[in-house]
Each structure stands twice: as C-alpha cells, then as structure tokens.
Design a protein around this nucleic acid. Structure first.
Length: 768
DNA sequence: TTCGGAGCCCTTTTT
DNA sequence: GGGCTCCGAA
C-alpha cells in the first residue's frame, strides 16, 4: 500500500553522490567514528549507549535516513518508537531535512502509545473492542474507577480510587492482566478485592468501548501473543526497528518489542542508563542493562564524546552522577575551554528566587543572549507559578513547555465531551460529564435513575435518555431538559454528516448553552475560557475529520504551540529531556523538594538515585552555563517551611562550582552578586546581622518571610564548624525563639518554643 | 436542585 | 493555598 504510492525522494536527495569521487553519502560526513558505526550497523541487534549531548538524535535520524537511502526498506517497513510526541515530531522533521522534503509513509514512527493505538484499532474486535473505541485519559479513568469503588461499597476514604488507579496502571505497565496479577498483590487492595476491581474496571471499559493508556500497550501485546498470524505479519513488515530512550521502556513495552523483533531482528535501541527518570511510571532500567542477554550477539556502541556542554558543566554533572551505583558506566569527555563554573546561590524564598532568575536572564539578554536559549527547569510544576508571576510582572516573554495541558482544562474537556458524544453515542463518560453542564436541572437523582434505566436495558446512557423521556420515571423538569438534550444530540449527529467539524463544534457550543453559560459567568477567568474554546475550534481546522481530531487529542494532549519569538523557556526537568539551552536555571535545589521527599520515602535509595539522575539530566541540558539556586523558605501546602540545600549541591565537585551570595539580600539592591565564598565570614557576625535587621525594620511586604536582611553561605563541601553549640538560645525570624538541640556542620536542629523542632542553617538564626 | 461554607487532604514527575 | 467533598439552608 504505502510502498506502491511511495515516490522515492532519496534518489534526488542523495543524487549528488556521482559528483563526489569518494562514494560516500553526504549525510555521513561530520559523524565521528562511533556515531558512524551506529549509523552503518544496520543488521542485527544494536545497543547504542549514548551519553548526554553525544549526538544521539543525530545518529538516530541519520540511521533512518541511511536505511532509506540505501533502499534497505521502504518508510512503511520501519518501526521507530519514541516516548514523547515531541521526540516523534522532531525525528520526522529531521529525517525530512536530511533527505530533503517531507517524509511520507513513515506511518510507524510514533510513540509507543500511538503505535499501540494504531495496531489495536486494526484488530480491535480481537480485543473485545470496536475499531472506533475511545481512548480515555487519566481523568476519565479516575471517574470510572470511582464509580466502581462506590458500587462495590468500598470506603473511598480508606481505599482511594486514585490508589486503585495507580495500582492498575502499575499492573498494566508490567504486562499483567487481572488473572496474571500475583495473589499477594491482588489482595493488597480493599481486603483482597484488587483483582476483582481490576476485572470490573476492564469489563466497564469494554462495555464503554474504551481503552485507557495502559490498554493501548497491554491489549496490543495480548493481541500479538494470542494471534501468531498477526504477529508474523508485523514481523514480516518491520524490517528495521528503532527505539529511542530505551532506558525508559517498561515491561509491556519491552515484551511487545521483543515479540516484534524476534531473536534475530534488526533492532536498534538507543539510550542512556544515567538518564532513566521514569521508574515511577514503570520504566525498568534493567531493560537496557540486559539488552545483550536478550539479543545475543548484539553490538554495543558507546557514544562518549559530548558536543554540547563545557568541560565545567560536564565535570559537575559527571561528578554528581558518579554517586550512583549500578550504572553501566560511561566516561563522557569534551574539548574546549573549561567555561563558566556552575553558580550556586542561596536565596530567602521562592519569590526571591524568581526575582533573581528573572534579573539574571535580563542581564544576559542585555549582553546579547537570546531568551530562547535560556531555560528554567523545575522539579515540580507547582514551582512554575512564582516564575510566571514574576515574568508577567516584568513583562518578560516566556513560554511554558509541557505545562498544564490545554486539553486538560475543564472547558476544553467539556467541549470535547460534547464532540465525543456526537462522534460516539455510546460514550457514557462523556455523557455523564455534560449531562448537566450547563445546568439544566438534571441533578444527581435524575442521573441515577437514568443509569438504572440504562443498565436494565443494556443500552448507553444517551440511548436510554431518549427512551426514558417517554416514561414517567423522572420529574417533569428533568424529563423536559433531558428530552431536549437528546433531541439536540440527534440533530447534531445528523448535522455532523454534512457540516465541517469546526462549524459543527461552534454550533454545539452555541446550542448547548455552553457559551452562554460562560458569557454569563462573571468570574475573572470566564473570558479566558471563552478564548480557549475559540482556540479549540481553530485547532480543529488542521484535521480532516472529527474522528481524526479526537484521536489526536487523546494521544497528544498538547496543543501545537506556535508561540514564536524570543521567549524564556519554563518546564519541568522531565519535560526537558532531550533538549538543550545555552543557559539553564535550576531552582529549588532543596532537601525534600529535590530530591523529593516523597520519592525517597516510597522508593528509598532507588528513588534517591533516580532523583540524582534527574539532576544529571537537568545540568546536562546546559551548553554554556548552569545556575543552581535554593531557597531557605518555601511554602508547602500553604504553610511556610524552612529547607536545607539539596545534598546534590554538596555532591557537585568543588572545582566546578562557584557559590555566590546575593547583594539584594542585604538591601533590596538587585543586580549581580559578588563571589562571597572567600570572605563571607565578615557578614557572619550576629552583630552585623542584627544591624542589618534593624535597618530593614519597618519594611513590610504582603506576606512572610519577615525580613530580607539575612546573609548566609553554603559550603559546597565539608561545612565548617558553626559558632553555635547545643543548648544555645537562638532567634529565628520566622520561627521565633528556640534552643539548639543538635549541631551538624552549619546545620542546626532547633527546638523552637512555638514552632517546634526544625532544621535550619546557622546563618538564619541569631543568638538570643 | 443548587449554592455556600466548613473542613479535609494533599500534590512530583507523563503517555 | 487550593481543590474537593460533605452538609445544611434556600
């Protein structure tokens, strides 16, 4: 099919070969020895261990181009899997650039999930679904789970559906169907009901003609396992298999891949064990560690030459990651001048931190650096808020990458639910979502009655609505509203066959009363919501049909952003993987936040090591400079907490780090900081600090931190002894008076009279 | 049925 | 600080 219509763009793209005496295609030039080896080793299993910044993406795309250029396979015969849509998109674009023009027919290039969805749709009936099944997201998944938990009379308080959802996800990630779950685990939820609930959930999904993200992989795996003919067909089709970010594959993905590759397949996986940061999502670093055993005779190629970062940055990152055990071990190297040291800075609180990042960014910008080449990488998305506030206040252009997803906004999900229901009358989850939105007087009681009615007749809710309004089961008001809604959907369904989907969407939003509801809404964000809906309609334009649009949204969840222009980038470290910037800001390096307390509590040492890998990923995004900061105070769950600098800071090799103290600290004079590490002690005396505190007295701001006049330094190694001793009375600006309970370097454990026991840095207290 | 207020629990990271 | 649920009143 594809092969027939495929017009070989490569002949023209690589046609220049004749002019060059050496018969070497242009795309190979500029590759180093190892990279080239990875490109040319097309046959048999290959493992490419690609350290950060070693040209991994280039190797991957060149390899694909090479396979195409040498006519080893048609585009449709290559399976190329990535983790993110972003990576898939980028790969497509880069291959296009390499071979000139757009790549047509690479229909098996995509994320695990999108490829899984494609396979599943082809053979849906074998998995108990119809080919037009709905892909539900985490939100729908949770609501479904809640219904089941409720129906089973389980105490939601004690056994939250979130937990159940997480467990089921985990099982699916490990390739376990309900019957495969080990008894011990299956009984672990709600007094042994784990397996039953999992079964019930799957049954509900099938009844709804729906699949969740996990099913896209697990159902596909079961499909291939249960139907050797189908498997043989795919094996035959995929002449070459390529997997990016192999260290992030989970068990299902691994099994799926092994099945498709067979033992002697041409499978090439690329990854870096040091960048494995998705164990929490079921990823198994083990997969990459045992590749050679899984595919005997595999060729292993290491890419160790870093082309991205300065020696200082690379040195700092390497020093940090060396603290992890159980690595395959690589020695990255780079050439050139050492470059700027990594700057580490302590600030008072998150607001202060944002102020600094913004002013540093502006200063760099004045020196001629573009904002687009700067990124702020945070551990958790809630940290973004302070930065956004600051950037907005300053009018600094920025963009959030990966942030709160467009399609996850309530108004968008509502609109999508209407559209889903038009496309698929049996989408009960969508129906429930919008049945009373906008308010139509169809309350819980009516919906419950409708549910029973539907269940008794074994029909979807929308169909049941049409029938129930012919009876007297509902109060008149609800009956009338429901009748109107059902009539609307019938009409929209008819219209959808003749009207372009964008116009249909506008019509639905109008006639359902949804836009009117928002127009009548006086709250501050209502206008924004209306804009979002307009944006939604606009985004539909690029799709051929409503179905194509719905599929895209379900799998991609992101709105194609074309916010061009010179903007600062703001994202989580997870979202930053694979990206690079001249300047990288790494705020929030505090114990508890990064490394995350929760990860450490839940996964102990393994969790800590994953956090450390994340730190490694963060630092190695930087090409020229990295600025790490930590705040002494941060608001957690609404209350203020003091924090200690992250242990990762002390793990950075001293020779690559420059610790700075902020002048702005002492009097609000923003600007560049002096390197204080040599003479910080002159600012250390309690008397000096008290003097500063007095100077600041009377200065207030909207919320705590009480004062700004605090100075402290951070020891990047071996904190020197503090001037405080056990038993000393001390005063802390936020916690008040207390007595020192323990001393560890410059960190004090203080039993505060009012605030209780806290750990603080000595420079944050004064003698009382 | 809807709305408002009080209390509760939390929140990492993503396809 | 906020989002959610539960509860009582209109």
């Amino acid at each position: 099919m594809t092969a027939n219509s495929y017009q070989d763009p490569l002949d023209s793209a690589f046609g220049d070969e004749q002019k060059v005496p050496a018969r070497e295609p242009a795309y190979l030039s500029g590759l180093n020895k190892e990279q080239r080896e990875a490109v040319e080793a097309t046959e048999g299993p290959v493992l490419v261990l690609a350290g950060a910044g070693t040209g991994k993406t280039r190797v991957l795309t060149t390899r694909l181009a090479h396979i195409l250029a040498t006519h080893k396979a048609w585009p449709g015969q290559i399976l190329a899997v990535t983790f993110t849509n972003k990576a898939a998109r980028e790969m497509k674009e880069r291959i296009g650039t390499l071979i000139g023009g757009v790549v047509e027919g690479m229909q098996w290039l995509g994320t695990f999930h999108s490829i899984g969805a494609r396979m599943l749709r082809r053979h849906a009936e074998l998995a108990g679904l119809k080919s037009n099944f709905t892909i539900i997201d985490a939100d729908d998944q949770l609501r479904l789970m809640k219904q089941i938990v409720e129906a089973e009379n389980i105490d939601e308080k004690r056994w939250p559906s979130r937990t159940l959802a997480a467990m089921i996800d985990g099982w699916k990630n490990r390739g376990l169907r309900p019957e495969d779950v080990p008894d011990g685990e299956a009984h672990g939820f709600a007094f042994g009901k784990g397996r039953t609930l999992y079964k019930l959930y799957q049954a509900r999904l099938k009844a709804l003609n729906a699949a969740d993200f996990g099913d896209l992989l697990l159902d596909t795996l079961s499909l291939l396992r249960g139907h050797p003919d189908i498997l043989a067909d795919y094996r035959d089709r995929f002449r070459y298999i390529l997997v990016d970010e192999y260290q992030d594959t989970n068990v299902v993905q691994y099994l799926w891949l092994k099945l498709l590759a067979g033992t002697g397949g041409n499978v090439c996986v690329v990854g870096d064990d040091d960048q494995s940061i998705y164990a929490w999502r079921g990823a198994e670093v083990e997969n990459i560690l045992r590749f050679e055993r899984d595919f005997p005779g595999a060729k292993v190629i290491r890419l160790e030459r870093n082309y991205r970062s300065t020696p200082s940055i690379l040195g700092a990152a390497s020093g940090l990651i060396a603290a992890n055990k159980g690595r395959l071990g690589k020695t990255l190297w780079t050439e050139g001048e050492p470059g700027e040291k990594i700057k580490v800075q302590g600030v008072w609180d998150a607001e202060e931190e944002a102020r600094h990042v913004a002013s540093d960014a502006e200063a760099l910008h004045r020196e001629g650096h573009s904002f687009a080449q700067m990124a702020i990488l945070v551990r958790a998305s809630f940290q973004m808020r302070e930065f956004e506030d600051r950037f907005i206040a300053l009018g600094l252009p920025y963009r959030v990458i990966g942030g709160p997803r467009f399609y996850e906004r309530a108004e968008i999900r509502d609109a999508m639910a209407y559209l889903r229901l038009v496309a698929q009358g049996d989408d009960d989850l969508a129906f429930e979502r919008i049945v009373n939105k906008p308010k139509r007087g169809i309350g819980d009681a009516s919906v419950q009655a409708l549910h029973q009615f539907a269940r008794a007749r074994q029909v979807p809710l929308l169909a049941a609505a049409r029938e129930i309004v012919e009876t007297d089961e509902l109060p008149p008001k609800a009956k009338k509203a429901l009748a109107e809604l059902a009539a609307n959907f019938a009409r929209w369904g008819d219209t959808s066959r003749v009207l372009p989907h964008t116009e249909l969407a506008e019509m639905i939003l109008d006639e359902s009363g949804y836009t009117d509801m928002l127009k009548a809404d006086k709250s501050a964000d209502a206008p924004g919501r209306l804009d979002n809906l307009k944006e939604l309609v606009r985004s539909m334009e690029q799709f051929e049909s409503l179905a194509a649009f719905l599929e895209h949204v379900a799998l991609v969840m992101e709105l194609e952003q074309n916010e061009t222009g010179d903007r600062l980038n703001l994202m989580t470290m997870h979202a930053a993987k694979g990206l690079e910037y001249d300047t990288v800001f790494l705020p929030g390096w505090e114990e508890g936040l990064f490394p995350s307390q929760r990860t450490m509590d839940e996964n102990g040492l393994a969790g800590l090591e994953e956090e450390r890998r994340l730190a490694y990923v963060g630092i190695t995004r930087a090409k020229q400079r990295a600025l790490i900061s930590f705040a002494a105070n941060r608001r957690v769950h609404g209350s203020w907490q003091s924090a200690l600098p992250s242990r990762f800071i002390t793990e950075l090799p001293e020779e690559h780090v420059e610790t700075t103290v902020d002048e702005g600290f002492y009097g609000g004079n923003a600007g560049f900081r002096d390197n204080m590490s040599g003479f910080a002690s002159s600012y250390d005396s309690p008397g000096w600090k008290r003097a500063q505190a007095n100077k600041e007295r009377g200065y207030t701001r909207a919320r705590p931190p009480l004062i700004e006049a605090q100075a402290f330094t951070v020891q990047t190694s071996d904190p020197s002894a503090t001037q405080y001793a056990r038993g000393d009375r001390v005063f802390h600006q936020k916690f008040g008076y207390g007595r020192v309970k323990a001393v560890e370097g410059n960190k004090l454990t203080v039993d505060f009279d009012k605030a209780g026991e806290k750990k603080v840095i000595d420079t944050f207290v004064t003698r009382a």
